[in-house]
């Protein structure tokens, strides 16, 4: 029996449908690469446990316990690192010819990038869920209203979305997955550590302290601490504006990153695949 294939004239696709096919593939990839799977499952849990129990005793946080302080930072770091995933998977697809194969198919315009973006959101948000559970177990609590809590998670989703565009830009500009890895380690690590991610900003020397105060990673971490009612890195009237208004400041970063990076990323991506 031969399978009847509808004729080309009658086949209709949609952006949503094609995006989902590419996204599902991306999720399969995560599930089937042991190191990618551990990045999104074991590693976040380990981070929470390590910082909570190893550093927890050594770091003092004014007005609260370190485990509560830690969660905002660790969420922020996970979201920023989300840029990695999409950059690596895009660079990988480009170097092994998958992008060309997709482009030879009658797919909706933009569905390859959109599919990568959806898979990458999953990659960022699954660890957030696991860390939340793990955090609750080690003593982290949300002390604010349901609306504030929802706002906190919405901020994480929004900032993840912004970081995807940074990732697309990296993936389009760098020649190989290895290059992405290199840049990520030399750029993203300092950015996430010179911040109030794991330690209160007051403990940093003055120049680093200023950088940390205005670092968007600090902003996201502080915004989450504020929205969840957890102890903050800096309290006091002499803190800079960025620290006094972390939610607005991180929303501004989010919008700014999307406004700048998304058009650049789409352009860079289109250029790299055009020849």
């Amino acid at each position: 029996m031969t399978v009847h294939v509808p004729s080309a004239d009658t086949r209709r696709g949609s952006l949503l449908g094609d995006t989902w096919v590419v996204a599902r593939r991306g999720i399969q990839h995560i599930r089937r690469q042991p190191e990618a799977l551990s990045d999104v499952t074991l590693q976040p849990v380990m981070f929470v446990l390590l910082f909570a129990y190893v550093f927890g005793g050594a770091i003092d946080v004014a007005g609260g316990n370190y485990r509560e302080f830690l969660m905002g930072g660790i969420f922020a770091q996970t979201i920023v690192f989300g840029a990695f995933g999409v950059a690596i998977s895009l660079a990988y697809d480009r170097t092994n010819g998958a992008i060309d194969r997709f482009r030879s198919l009658p797919m909706a315009k933009g569905s390859v990038l959109a599919g990568h973006a959806v898979a990458s959101l999953m990659r960022s948000l699954l660890p957030v869920v696991l860390m939340s559970i793990c955090g609750l177990i080690v003593g982290w609590r949300i002390h604010t209203s349901v609306a504030d809590a929802v706002g906190g998670y919405a901020l994480m989703i929004g900032f993840s979305f912004a970081m995807i565009w940074v990732g697309v830009l990296m993936g389009a500009m760098l020649p190989s997955p290895e290059a992405v890895q290199g840049v990520a380690f030399t750029a993203l690590f300092p950015i996430t550590f010179v911040a109030s991610t794991f330690v209160p900003v007051e403990s940093l020397p003055s120049v680093l302290r200023t950088i940390a105060e205005w670092n968007p990673v600090t902003a996201v971490a502080e915004a989450l601490r504020t929205l969840f009612g957890n102890p903050s890195a800096i309290q006091g009237p002499d803190a800079p504006w960025s620290i006094q208004h972390p939610v607005i400041y991180s929303l501004a970063w989010m919008v700014g990153i999307i406004a700048v990076c998304a058009p650049l990323a789409v352009r860079a991506y289109n250029r790299t695949i055009a020849d």
């Binding site: 294939v5 509808p6 086949r11 209709r12 696709g13 449908g17 094609d18 096919v21 593939r25 997709f102 198919l105 009658p106 797919m107």
Partner: peptide, 8 residues
């Protein structure tokens, strides 16, 4: 996957 992207 290819079949789905051909909208079969």
């Amino acid at each position: 996957m290819i079949g789905e992207l051909h909208h079969l």
